[in-house]
Computed example of a mutant assay.
Amino acid sequence: MRKVALAFAAASMTLPVVALPTAAEAQGYYQGKTWRGSDGRLRCRRRNGTTGLIVGGAAGALAGRAIDGGRNRTVGTIAGAAAGALLGREIDKSRGFRCR
């Protein structure tokens, strides 16, 4: 019975998944990075900066730890992570924004 269940689970993961259109796509409002809102205004999809926040925080923590050369490097790590996260988020949000 266990082998049958594992075989069924493996087969179900290999089958292609059919993507169903969302309500906005079904009504024809959504066209890629822009869509028309319920009030008729054109809306743009923007990056929220999460990737930059995570990458910047990790890089900032490593840089802060390397810069703070004392016995207890916790303060440098935390300060570097905070500064790197804020900087990375702002860079990620401002990069590549164009609404047509």
Rank of each mutant, 00 (worst) to 15 (best):
T50E: 09
L6D: 07
Y30M: 15
A26V: 12
G52H: 01
E90Y: 02
E25V: 06
T74V: 09
F8G: 06
T77V: 07
G60N: 01
R65A: 10
V4L: 08
V75M: 15
A10Q: 13
Q27A: 14
T50H: 08
I54D: 07
G84Y: 00
A59M: 04
D39H: 07
K3T: 03
G52M: 02
R2P: 05
G49V: 10
R45D: 07
G32N: 13
G69M: 06
G84T: 04
V75G: 11
A82F: 01
Q31S: 15
R95Y: 02
F97P: 06
G60T: 04
V55M: 14
I54S: 10
G88Q: 01
G64W: 00
N48E: 09
L53C: 14
F8V: 12
G37N: 13
V4G: 02
A26R: 06
A11R: 14
S12D: 08
T77D: 03
A26N: 09
G40M: 08
T77N: 06
F8E: 13
A58H: 04
S94L: 08
S12I: 04
G64K: 03
R36G: 08
G52S: 03
A79S: 11
G84E: 01
A11E: 14
P16Y: 09
M1K: 08
A63Q: 02
F97Y: 08
G64L: 04
R36E: 15
V75Q: 11
M1S: 10
T50N: 09
A85V: 03
F97G: 09
T74C: 04
G37P: 05
G49P: 11
A82K: 00
G40S: 12
M1R: 09
G57P: 02
R73W: 00
G76H: 03
K33G: 15
A82P: 05
A24Q: 11
G60D: 01
T22D: 15
